[in-house]
Amino acid sequence: MRLPRNHPIPWTLVCFLTPVILWLFLLIVLPHIDLLLMSLRREDATGATSWSIANYLLFFKEPIYWLTFVRTAIYSIIVTFLTFVIALPVAFYITKVAAFRFQGFLTMLLLLPFWVSELVRVYGWMILLRESGIVNHFLLRFGILERPVEMLYNDATMVMGLVYTSMLFMVIPLISVLENLDDSLIEAAYDLGGTMWSIVFRIIIPHAVPGIVAGSIVVFMLTLGNYLTPNLLGGKNSLWFTEQIYNQFIASFNWNQGSAFGFLLLVLSSLVVWAGLKLSGQKLSRVMK
């Protein structure tokens, strides 16, 4: 860009722009281009590499790969939906039902567990639910069970763990949209004879759409990309797609195949984010506020 002679160089712009450009291009743009290029190459027996779409073909040829992919996507949708169903009443309670003096306290209480490492939280669930765990201990003591049951390593526990892990990212956006919902709308509906369900579905949920979209996008993305929770709570049968990526990278050392998987996961997650924004007519920059 050539500047006119009497135009001073915008030094502050240069100072602020340079680090941001370096950050975004060196750590975000170029690595992801490299990921795509890597996924389009294949190494033959001699170690020479060539361009090929074989990595993607293998994904579609081997049922274990695409089934895991579809399974991960479907479970992520289920987790997102469950998180929403559980979180909505809590957000509603805190913003509209609880006494004002408890509001701040309850919100803080809500946030606290999520400052703690995900690993610690998952570990807590493992101590609770495993065969020698706390829940089994009490069930045995009260005579509800004859012998301990292994409650870990199944899909239900894995889904529960994923819901737990991502709960915060649904509750907080819901609280912030419901705070802006005018109480008089609900009062008016009530005075006009609206039932609880009609108020929920025709006033509260339509008003909360921006929060629902923001929460769902983040929860879906985090669930899809989660490795820790499926791995520790789902065990060997968890068949989560991030584990396939990990196996290709670390166990098989097949970076080309792993990149193809990674890129497919990225495409899926971006597609869902995009579809969520399109369906609700919103912009990413506004949702992420």
């Binding site: 992801h32 993305m221 899809l224 990309g225 996961l265 997650s269 971006s270």
Partner: peptide, 9 residues
């Protein structure tokens, strides 16, 4: 909105 695993690889 990029999964952490993908950022890593």
């Amino acid at each position: 909105v990029i999964p952490g695993v993908i950022l890593g690889i």
